[in-house]
Design a protein around this nucleic acid. Structure first.
Lengths: 339, 339
DNA sequence: ATCGTCAAGGCGAACGTTCGCGCGAACGTT
DNA sequence: AACGTTCGCGCGAACGTTCGCCTTGACGAT
């Protein structure tokens, strides 16, 4: 700020060449005599020259920015993902000469407006999407515009776009297989409404694992609802009120918050978790290790997903063809005392 | 992308005026005949003109970006703050025509390098700092350069810079007063090392509340250590092993993670939390409401802090003088079953 | 001697905007 | 009728880069 701006012209003046020559030499676009080369580098070093990024972007007609927006969770819920996801994206982007542009998430029709505006004002070169679901309007819009983006999460099968996702089915499959290995046979699932793509995906693993050992899950053991503590608790109370021969001995919830509700319900009924009822969550939120008992849960490779999203998007922006348009990452079951 | 770029010249061509005139009219800098005015607005509307932000920045010599970087918490710990803080900043910034530029947090000497680089390449107009502590090198650097910034958190008293902070002392004071009102007299504190500015601030409120009712806290009841689960647990075990007449009946931890460790320790000793031992945390992390029993904790007005930081920084960037250079926000005690 | 070749580096232009100045016409004043 | 004044708008310039083309001098081959 205080020190006068040091531009190409300043460096050129000190080195005794034209400023365009300085540009080319610093960018390695031009062979000059060893002597001149040295003079230019010295001058740049002396003055502490750093290229003005705005001017570069102006010239390039690109912003080298990646737009990203996330649903803000309510103060009760926690987005434990955000820190890791954002950090990994920021790092990966910076390494490739890009930066992230976070913008407010809007619900409804204005959502597209925000994307449209960022494109029109040329603030971003591409987007990373999260919280995608079936028929995501953003995907339709961006595909139609032919604007580059990568989604973290899948959508309708017929839509062709690059995505990275965590293999939710593989996660629950591991979890259920673990419960089966422990001798559980009546395993319940606390699931989400069928309108949730992620929920359906995760639930698939439950069916796969059960079918593999020839068990047909009883219909009463599959409950659906919003993924909150209260819903998890109520569902579990319903399960525990079943007659003994139908009552599940284990349950898996599609997220940790529901699993915590389930633990609460079990305690209300005087059951000891891990012994009388096995509980497994999904997401491995940072605090579930401190619950009593610590919650077994499924951890997603979030940082890896973030890196991959940016890596793929950058490839698109640089005009390369993607070696892999779809990336499916495996989650990992973290065993603790609850199951 | 596909549609040809619509610039001022395109609008001007359609409206039959010079492109500079279009610029001025759209920015309200020039009075023209009602008829021309209408023609220009129509043309801009028709073509869907939106100003190229990069060119604007180029012209203005500013980026309208606010640099922000945060310490990435380890995967076990959680940054439940980030979502709210970031969201509120992004919204406030956008409303003022700015955007946030997140960049990777670096430890040690390279940290300043990152800040220096963003300034030199003119990518940002100012910074918001978090996780500031005594003698924060970033503060020294930015003050010396005269580069605009606002800190969330205080540092050395002698350093003069704009900040927003949560009144940690007021938080613990409320908590201790609540414990005193409940009849507790031997109240322990699980604190941080004296090198922590935030820790000292929060601890102050403990002393203030105790002194106000004429109680000198016993030295054994003040323990210091890193703010982790394990440290919190170990400290609490030490407290509970004190002879009955010295043993505290309540404790307050400077963060929730330690408080959770304390709850764990109490359970190990067969105590019922809330009855045999009152526990209060700090931060009100989203999941502590689901602990057993739910944890009483101190909630910080994070979103308000984020808004305020950006608001003040924008004022600085617009050349206004700050009406208030220091803002101290009051936290709120959230009462639950643990105390 | 003449010509083509090549290395070294200068020069003009352009990206899209905003800003200050200037110019002609219309208008009101002396 | 001559003279300021105002209105409505055009024009040139600039922000700092990068890119393509041009110029100059030296050199070797014919």
């Amino acid at each position: 700020m205080m020190p006068p701006k040091v531009t190409l012209k300043a460096v050129a003046a000190q080195a005794g060449v034209s400023y365009q020559t300085v540009s080319k030499v610093l960018n390695g676009q031009l062979q000059v005599s060893a002597e001149t080369h040295e003079r230019i580098l010295q001058a740049a070093q002396n003055l502490g020259y750093r290229p003005n990024q705005i001017a570069r972007n102006m010239r390039a007609g690109r912003s080298f920015m990646i737009g990203y927006s996330w649903v803000q969770t309510s103060p009760d819920q926690v987005n434990h993902i955000l820190d890791q996801f954002l950090s990994s994206m920021v790092r990966e982007a910076e390494a490739a000469g890009y930066h992230l542009l976070p913008f407010p998430f809007q619900e409804g029709e204005e959502q597209i407006t925000a994307y449209r505006e960022l494109i029109a004002t040329r603030r971003v070169d591409g987007f990373v999407l999260t919280s995608v679901d079936y028929n995501d309007p953003r995907i339709h819009f961006l595909l139609e515009r032919g604007f580059p983006f990568v989604a973290f999460g899948r959508s309708n099968p017929e839509l062709d776009f690059p995505w990275v996702d965590v293999d939710g089915a593989a996660g629950t499959r591991q979890a259920v297989e673990h419960l089966l290995a422990r001798g559980h046979r009546r395993i319940a699932a606390l699931a989400w409404p069928e309108t949730s793509r992620v929920g359906n995906d995760r639930l698939q693993g439950y069916f796969q694992a059960m079918q593999k050992v020839g068990i047909t899950p009883c219909p009463k053991c599959l409950l659906r609802g919003e993924g909150t503590f209260d819903v998890g608790r109520e569902m579990t109370l319903r399960l525990l009120d079943l007659p003994a021969e139908e009552r599940p001995t284990a349950l898996i919830a599609l997220n940790d918050t529901m699993a915590i509700g389930a633990m609460y319900a079990a305690r209300e009924r005087g059951l000891e978790i891990g012994r009388d009822l096995a509980v497994i969550g999904f997401d491995d939120a940072p605090m579930v290790q401190y619950l009593y008992p610590p919650l077994t849960s499924i951890r997603q490779p979030i940082a890896q997903a973030g890196r991959k999203c940016v890596e793929m998007l950058v490839s698109l922006l640089e005009g390369k063809t993607l070696t892999e348009k779809h990336v499916l990452l495996a989650p990992r079951l973290i065993l603790r005392a609850s199951a």
